[in-house]
Amino acid sequence: MSTLVIITIISLCAIGIVSAVILYLVAQKFKVEEDPRIDIVEGLLPGANCGGCGYPGCRGLAEAAVKSETMDGILCPVGGAETMNKIAAALGREVKAQAPKIAVVRCNGHCENRPRTSVYDGARSCAIEHSLYVGDTACGFGCLGCGDCVTACPFDAIHMDPVSSLPVVDEQKCVACGACVKACPRNIIELRNKGPKDRRVFVCCVNKDKGGIARKACKAACIGCGKCAKECPFGAITVENNLAYIDYSLCRLCRKCVSVCPTGAIHEVNFPPRKTETEAEKAQAVTATPQTTRETDSKN
């Protein structure tokens, strides 16, 4: 009995040792020569493999970073500046500071602004609804509300608001990987500069219809009146195809455009409430309203 046990143990050990030797030899023979820095860089990356950098997974970025001399165009949106500094240090290079970005949803067509005109009864997918027809509202540019962006987000950073049925970005979680931007069939979501103290001003609409049609479909639509562009002291606003766009690299967050927009399509976020200006603004609003109505009427 005891010899049996001993023989078993010995033979198992022998098999183990022989296999280990074979494995070692094979590993040596077929070893792939690789730049060891790739592993180091990969270790510094978050490891989410989200593809937000434009490379296939974190290792793809690491390889590109090691190969690249200048580090141009190499940015891990998830890790941000901190990670990039570490990588640059590890590779002994300089890295240009790149402003952090965030996904911005450019549609404000909740039920009150944009009445529903039909009921969509197909598969719950924005891409399918978009390819089928105008959507359950009269606006052919706005959010469809099926949540393709929510499904696409690998960081759980975007959710549908149950009341407005519009997507809401969680500023803490969003790493600007751009997955939602690619998923949205109507190109509503844009990556924009996060801005100082997270303050941003942007046009919350992508409707390219003529003013009258856009306004009819949605109360909060950009009608392309161009007031904001005239108002902007920095030339950051352009109006093209009946749609205003604020270039975030030129915008200085003065917020003048926000007050002149007749439909409230320009949004400001994370600014402190305007206490002192309220009175002045009201006065402005009173004078502004009749003008704008006239303007939109004439456009109709």
Binding site: G122, A123, S125, A127, I128, S131
Partner: peptide, 11 residues
């Protein structure tokens, strides 16, 4: 909704 998705995939 088989065809809905197949159509999307086909496109």
């Amino acid at each position: 909704p088989l065809l809905d998705y197949i159509r999307l995939g086909k496109a």
